[in-house]
Amino acid sequence: MSQDTVIKAEGLNLVFETNDGPVHALKDVDLEIDKGEFVSFIGPSGCGKTTFLRCIAALETPTGGGLSVNGMTPDEARRNRAYGYVFQAAGLYPWRTIAGNIKLPLEIMGYSRADQESRVKNVLELVDLEGFGKKYPWQLSGGMQQRASIARALAFDADILLMDEPFGALDEIVRDHLNEQLLQLWARTNKTIGFVTHSIPEAVYLSTKIVVMSPRPGRITDIIDSPLPKERPLDIRDTPEFLEIAHRVREGLRAGHAYDD
């Protein structure tokens, strides 16, 4: 284990007991994520990518194998507030303003009033929502709501950011824009990001490491380290290097599917 390994999974297994018998959601997953990496998990539905993310967040409990976050068990890490989590839907409280929503975790974690205010101001700037603090979520567009929910996850000092298809419900154009912003944000904050998606271009564009997964049982079929530079304009997606990685990801996904047919 290298010095700056943040998340380490060894032979991780998770079996759900359902009415139709046991379901192997994760099988023998081995993975190391280093500090400051941007890791995407990609695969068809049922491949366990969200489940794996939830295991890291201690929202699911693995049934076998080892998993450590910051050198602790996931649940200890959760109680140490080691990560921010962004869900598929913004999930902002309609009865709180945008600023109030961002303050929510700060209140729970006991930050001081003054600290809360300055942090809200900072993260609102970070996600480009200055001046919207006093608005209610339902007065904002879907893309702005999702940005606010990212701000909420950034507001406290966690160096891991876990994102579960955060842009899945948005249209392509908004999504491009948010992807670009997310990269800038990552460069500025130097957080470790785990990102679940089912879009190949999104995964390739964002990540330093792409984890390709496949279903029944949910497992990792390929891990691709991206050679792309850290500085990535949107049109990098038309370069041969980009297309080559995308091709490899697609091959990996297809290989995982093959045994379905």
Binding site: L59, R78, R79, N80, R81, Y85, G91, L104, I108
Partner: peptide
Amino acid sequence: AMQRDLMRTYAA
């Protein structure tokens, strides 16, 4: 469930 999960991630 999502909102309850969010509270869990804050260890509320």
